[in-house]
Design a protein around this nucleic acid. Sequence first.
DNA 1: GGGCCCGCAGGG
DNA 2: CCCTGCGGGCCC
Length: 612
Amino acid sequence: MASQPRINAALVAVIRMARTAKNASAGGSGNPVHYIRNEARPDKAFTTDRAKKAGKANASSGQIFVTIAPDHFGPIPAENDPKRRLGVLVGETWEDRLECRQWGAHFPHVAGIAGQSEHGAQSVALSGGYIDDEDHGEWFLYTGSGGRDLSGNKRTNKEQSSDQKFDKMNAALRLSCKKGYPVRVVRSHKEKRSSYAPETGVRYDGVYRIEKCWRKIGVQGTYKVCRYLFVRCDNEPAPWTSDLHGDRPRPLPKIKELQGATDITERAGSPSWDYVENEGWKWVKPPPISKKPAQSGDPETDKQFRKYQKRAHMSMNERLLKEFGCSICKNVMKEPLTTPCGHNFCKACLTAAFGDEGSMRERSRGGRTLRAQKIVKNCPSCPTDICDFLENPQINIEMKDLIDNLLAKAAKEKTDAEGSAEENDDDEEDALEKEEEDDSSLNEEENDDGAENKAGEEDAVVKIVVDAKDELKKPLKRKGDEEEEAKDEKKIKTTAAAATDVENAAEEDAEKAEDKEEEGAKKLQKKRKGRAEAAGTAAGGGKRKRASPAAAEEKAAAAAAGGGKRKKTSPAAAEETTPAAASTPRRATRSGGAVAGGSPASRTRSNTKAGN
DNA sequence: GGGCCCGCAGGG
DNA sequence: CCCTGCGGGCCC
């Protein structure tokens, strides 16, 4: 064996599978995938060779973590957030639209409006897709969709080429306007013209009501666009204010462009979502009934949802177990034997395959005793003679443990079939993951002891992993005080997962680093930074992220120095009488020093940013 | 930063 | 089933 070692193909397959599954579920593309686990998604994000050229948008989108119906109106409450029991908080920031979608704030991953023409609009995204948009924070003017030429396989097109009409999504928005439904609003970093957009990612800014809508010739000057006046009406303060309370009803801003507008629509009757003294904003009329199979809330579908999750998870276990199949009986191996030639069988199967034969056969011919002949026993999977091995076959203990682990896991899942969502969460870590966690903690300890015995490439890898871990820990240690308990567990898992992820990345890059050491190192560092940042998000675990103080400062300064961007880009704004006018000095005051509730994480981030 | 190109989700 | 759509990675 030593002279001609054989690779255990089954183990290779299992390890590879476990690893790719992990990468897939841990988001191989470097996004903070802390939440994505065992979802029913293909291992390969890309289905065709041609598609590989394209990016994340071509991957299937991730699992939805909240249990709201797809057409749920209003804030996402804690009871629909089984993972964190927090709900989606104002200020929560995601890396991109796909991640935002996973938390239900805004489901479409390209379209800016979520809604149904006969039912209403649930959410909008401010992403800079329409230059007509005008953002004043507490209120903004939004532009409808359509009127553009999307021929030629385009997804967007900056240029209007026909009038927008109040149909489809535009009708949905108008309906929400008429009924006074709350509309969730997310702002994207892609909205460059707004002072209220986040620097990075996509941020949930709370709910707004559409007070009016109309049609008007757009800024491009030729075609009509649908226009909507959104005014904030959330019980949580906006991410850019230091206010401790949410919105109060405010007078509508004067909109100059309303003059000469057509098809003006205002709310018909009293709004469904309104402000009640001492209670805040709430449904004063029952919210619209969901027209879609709710993912939860209703026990029937909830069960289906869990079953779906379960199945997705089971399949992973099952697939792993399948790799541990005995090629004789086709079942998962019992008492696995690993032959010198690297094949695996149940002990019983293999011994049965050769009967009770010994290894030698006595031969006699005509009274003479011939030299005993060694019996050749070929491995059932290859021509190798495994006779000697069969003399004293040793069970592969490690493999057995692994199989037992997987089996126990599978059995537990079955037992827990009717269990709660929390229990399911616990199940998510499978045996392999645990093993890896153990490994990594081992590595860490080794290094804490000052292990200098590792050389070269391996050393680099380990160092990177450890460094990354340290970085990962920083935001955790300085994390805020709220919700500690609820998130502790998650954080740990997250860190471990992220660290392993880094480890994988480091391994991948190790080769490159060898050849182009410097370039490679740079790359690694970049990667590491990315992961650490990602972990920062993870550490927040959805903790609200305030708009970064540095950015606010900069913007406030710009505003102070003569009107700033806003005036330049929004000539039609009626600033004097608007509530938003008050927000500028407020931000200025805040940037003067007192930042209430700025999270350490975001401070770190903005510092980094400022460094750039 | 802009152009390109695609998969995907969801409305209708 | 077809059409639409304020994405996103890659290449330049």
